[in-house]
């Protein structure tokens, strides 16, 4: 049994809390309530590594998003085993921030697996080649176009990250 912590990082309003609510409670709300501080959710998972099953518990840290006035507190990243970087497909500024968020993760705890969620894929947005973002950092293990509203690729993202983390813990 592996218990570990992951942190969702991104600009404010990218849908970090909605992704977690969709994944943990299978719920969604259109109302935007800006997160302050941290709330922690828990999800039990099974990782399949080389045809062997491993139970794990993922503690998901939902931290407040970065704004022009407030950077992300590195305090909150301590002790994590993986990161999810969240951007809003409809707001270019949040996509431009991805690189900075990854640099922050690497600076705080290097070489942890990172997934990128290009969220709000249900809304109209400019077409972008998300696969190009894989070149930003060698620790990026998965890139997804997600929608917390339509439940698109949310489970896949967290399960991929879980598999990658457990694989590293087993080793």
């Amino acid at each position: 049994m592996f218990n570990y912590k992951i942190v969702l990082i991104g600009d404010f309003g990218t849908g970090k809390t909605s992704l977690i609510r969709r994944y943990v409670d299978n719920s969604f709300s259109e109302e935007y309530i800006s997160s302050i501080g941290v709330s922690i959710s828990k999800k039990s998972l099974i990782a399949n590594i080389n045809e062997q099953k491993y139970d794990s518990t993922m503690m998901i840290w939902d931290i407040e998003g970065q704004t022009d006035f407030k950077p992300i507190l590195t305090h909150y990243l301590n002790g994590a085993k993986g990161f999810v970087i969240v951007a809003d497909l409809t707001r270019e500024k949040t996509i431009e921030s991805i690189k900075g968020h990854i640099e922050l993760c690497q600076k705080t705890i290097p070489n942890l697996p990172i997934c990128i969620a290009f969220n709000k894929s249900d809304l109209n947005h400019d077409e972008i080649e998300i696969e190009n973002y894989k070149n930003i950092d060698s620790n990026i293990v998965g890139i997804f176009r997600t929608s917390a509203k339509d439940d698109n690729c949310v489970k896949e993202l967290f399960e991929l990250l879980n598999n990658e983390i457990v694989k590293r813990l087993v080793q």
Binding site: S35, G37, V38, S39, I40, M59, G79, A80
Partner: peptide, 28 residues
């Protein structure tokens, strides 16, 4: 659950390498 992941920091605290551990602004 807040303490999952903080094992290393707690050991540093126990061994006197740190004086305290502060986790701010949690919501429950």
């Amino acid at each position: 659950w807040e303490l999952v992941g903080f094992e290393e920091k707690l050991q540093e605290l126990y061994n006197g390498k740190k004086n305290y551990l502060h986790i701010p602004m949690l919501l429950k």
